[in-house]
Amino acid sequence: MTDVLLCVGNSMMGDDGAGPLLAERFRSAPQGNWVLIDGGSAPENDVVAIRELRPDRLLLVDATEMGLNPGEIRVINPDDIAEMFMMTTHNMPLNYLVDQIKEDVGEVIFLGIQPDIVGFYYPMTAPVIAAVEHVYARLASWEGQGGFALLEPDC
Results as ranks from 00 to 15, higher is better:
residue 68 L to Q: 02
residue 73 I to A: 03
residue 147 G to K: 09
residue 42 A to F: 12
residue 111 L to K: 08
residue 109 I to L: 15
residue 96 Y to F: 13
residue 135 V to R: 14
residue 61 V to W: 00
residue 119 G to L: 08
residue 11 S to T: 11
residue 24 E to D: 13
residue 103 E to D: 13
residue 103 E to K: 15
residue 96 Y to W: 05
residue 152 E to F: 00
residue 84 M to C: 06
residue 102 K to G: 01
residue 60 L to E: 06
residue 89 T to E: 02
residue 19 G to D: 01
residue 150 L to M: 12
residue 10 N to P: 07
residue 19 G to T: 01
residue 130 A to K: 15
residue 13 M to P: 04
residue 75 V to L: 12
residue 19 G to S: 05
residue 12 M to A: 15
residue 64 T to G: 03
residue 29 A to S: 13
residue 23 A to P: 05
residue 69 N to M: 09
residue 12 M to I: 12
residue 97 L to Y: 09
residue 152 E to S: 04
residue 35 V to M: 12
residue 96 Y to K: 10
residue 28 S to H: 10
residue 69 N to K: 10
residue 123 P to D: 13
residue 138 R to K: 15
residue 61 V to N: 01
residue 130 A to F: 09
residue 22 L to C: 04
residue 154 D to W: 03
residue 149 A to Q: 10
residue 24 E to T: 06
residue 48 V to C: 10
residue 120 F to Y: 12
residue 57 R to E: 12
residue 100 Q to M: 14
residue 107 E to L: 14
residue 125 T to C: 06
residue 41 S to H: 11
residue 16 D to N: 06
residue 7 C to I: 01
residue 122 Y to F: 14
residue 37 I to R: 09
residue 60 L to D: 06
residue 97 L to V: 10
residue 35 V to P: 00
residue 132 V to M: 07
residue 52 E to G: 02
residue 104 D to L: 08
residue 136 Y to P: 08
residue 51 R to Q: 13
residue 30 P to N: 01
residue 70 P to G: 04
residue 9 G to K: 00
residue 30 P to W: 11
residue 81 I to V: 14
residue 17 G to A: 05
